[in-house]
Simulated assay, not measured.
Amino acid sequence: MMKPLPSRLEKDAGRLIRILPPDVSFVLIGYDPDPEVGLSLEGMASCWRNSQRYFGGHG
């Protein structure tokens, strides 16, 4: 897996923009390559739910 550098995320976003229909939006989520101790799948799911609420989706 490649490191999530800003340039990498920018390239990935550009790739998605080219393949998605023009009326479709997306959120590209990166990750911390050196996560803090105690990170869990439950914690990641909670962050995802919170971001869904922020963007008007369902969490």
Score class of each variant (00 low, 15 high):
Met1Leu: 13
Met2Arg: 13
Lys3Thr: 10
Lys3Val: 09
Lys3Gln: 10
Pro4Lys: 00
Pro4Asn: 03
Leu5Val: 05
Leu5Glu: 10
Leu5Gly: 07
Pro6Trp: 06
Pro6Gln: 08
Pro6Tyr: 07
Ser7Leu: 05
Ser7Lys: 11
Ser7Met: 04
Arg8Ser: 11
Arg8Pro: 01
Leu9Pro: 06
Leu9Asn: 07
Leu9Tyr: 09
Glu10Ser: 13
Asp12His: 14
Ala13Val: 04
Ala13Tyr: 02
Gly14Lys: 12
Arg15Leu: 15
Arg15Ile: 14
Arg15Trp: 13
Ile17His: 06
Arg18Met: 06
Arg18Leu: 09
Leu20Met: 08
Pro21Met: 05
Asp23Arg: 12
Asp23Phe: 12
Val24Pro: 07
Val24Glu: 08
Val24Leu: 11
Ser25Arg: 05
Phe26Lys: 01
Val27Arg: 07
Val27Glu: 07
Leu28Met: 06
Leu28Lys: 05
Ile29Glu: 05
Gly30Met: 00
Gly30Thr: 00
Gly30Asn: 02
Gly30Gln: 01
Tyr31Ser: 04
Tyr31Thr: 02
Tyr31Cys: 06
Tyr31Arg: 09
Asp32Cys: 02
Asp32Lys: 02
Pro33Val: 06
Pro33His: 04
Asp34Arg: 05
Asp34Thr: 08
Pro35Arg: 02
Pro35Ser: 03
Pro35Gly: 05
Glu36Phe: 03
Glu36Cys: 00
Glu36Tyr: 01
Glu36Trp: 01
Val37Tyr: 00
Val37Glu: 00
Val37Cys: 00
Gly38Glu: 00
Gly38Gln: 00
Leu39Tyr: 10
Leu39Cys: 09
Leu39Asp: 07
Leu39Val: 13
Leu39Pro: 01
Leu39Gln: 09
Ser40Thr: 13
Leu41Glu: 13
Leu41Asn: 14
Glu42Cys: 09
Glu42Tyr: 13
Glu42Leu: 14
Met44Leu: 15
Met44Gln: 15
Ala45His: 13
Ser46His: 14
Ser46Glu: 15
Cys47Leu: 14
Trp48Pro: 12
Arg49Asn: 14
Arg49Ile: 10
Arg49Asp: 13
Asn50Ser: 12
Ser51Ile: 11
Ser51Thr: 12
Arg53Pro: 05
Arg53Lys: 14
Tyr54Ala: 08
Phe55Glu: 02
Phe55Tyr: 13
Gly56Ala: 04
Gly57Asn: 12
Gly57Ser: 10
Gly59Met: 07
Gly59Trp: 06
Gly59Glu: 11
Gly59Cys: 11
